[in-house]
């Protein structure tokens, strides 16, 4: 564990707390893509199957359970909560997620470290996480005024994987023989997808104006 990875995990944790805070405080999920949340739950469930058969540390187990439960909780809020579900804009949240999930599964079946069920699913989760934010970014372009908390949520989410990039560089420099091409390339693509959002987010923050992505 190094500071970059710990900071990355804390940023990821914080992003989910900000999202839950937004939904719970405003009793609204306006601007939040249910599709992206469902993709994240799929990412966590397929990545953390090792909860069933291996133990790494209390921290590792706690964080995995938190990510699975919190994303399930967000989905419940958007789908089931009597007030929040009224504010979900399904007409705007129309990204075809199968166009993301199927190529990721095909790629995971062909490019992986080990052709076993758990390893292919883990690889699938790595590829899927790289593109899971797309429905959310498309929704933000469609909903003109992005509220601050939703903007902060996406910013933190992008920041966590950027911190992981620093973690991988640190591990390459300090751990001879450390090679994780699949996560390195996926993580780089994932962070690259956020660049455009980062640009508009930081610009709106500096000009102290409302965040709005050009459609």
């Amino acid at each position: 564990m190094n500071i970059f990875r710990f900071a990355g995990d804390m940023t990821h944790l914080l992003s989910i707390i900000v999202l839950l805070l937004k939904i719970n405080a405003t009793k609204s999920c306006a601007g939040v893509s249910l599709k992206t949340q469902e993709l994240y739950l799929l990412v966590f469930v397929t990545r953390y199957l090792d909860l069933l058969y291996s133990y790494i540390s209390l921290y590792n187990t706690f964080m995995k359970l938190f990510f699975i439960c919190s994303s399930g909780c967000v989905i419940w809020y958007i789908r089931e909560h009597k007030t929040v579900s009224q504010t979900y804009d399904s007409a705007q949240d129309t990204f075809r997620v199968l166009f993301l999930a199927c190529p990721c599964m095909i790629l995971a079946l062909t490019v992986n470290h080990d052709f076993t069920v758990t390893e292919v699913l883990w690889t699938f989760s790595i590829y899927l996480e790289a593109v899971a934010i797309l429905p959310q970014l498309v929704l933000l372009q469609r909903t003109k005024n992005v509220d601050t908390l939703t903007g902060n949520y996406v910013f933190l989410l992008g920041g966590y994987r950027a911190l992981y990039l620093l973690n991988w560089i640190y591990r390459i420099l300090t751990e001879p023989g450390y090679r994780q091409w699949i996560v390195w390339i996926s993580g780089t693509i994932q962070t690259a997808i956020y660049c455009d959002f980062f640009y508009y987010y930081i610009k709106s923050w500096r000009n102290n104006e409302r965040l709005s992505l050009p459609s």
Binding site: H12, S54, I56, N60, M63, E119, Y164, R179
Partner: peptide
């Protein structure tokens, strides 16, 4: 994984 190391990152 083939390298033997379990996936220790989240």
């Amino acid at each position: 994984a083939a390298m033997g190391a379990p996936h220790d990152e989240l």
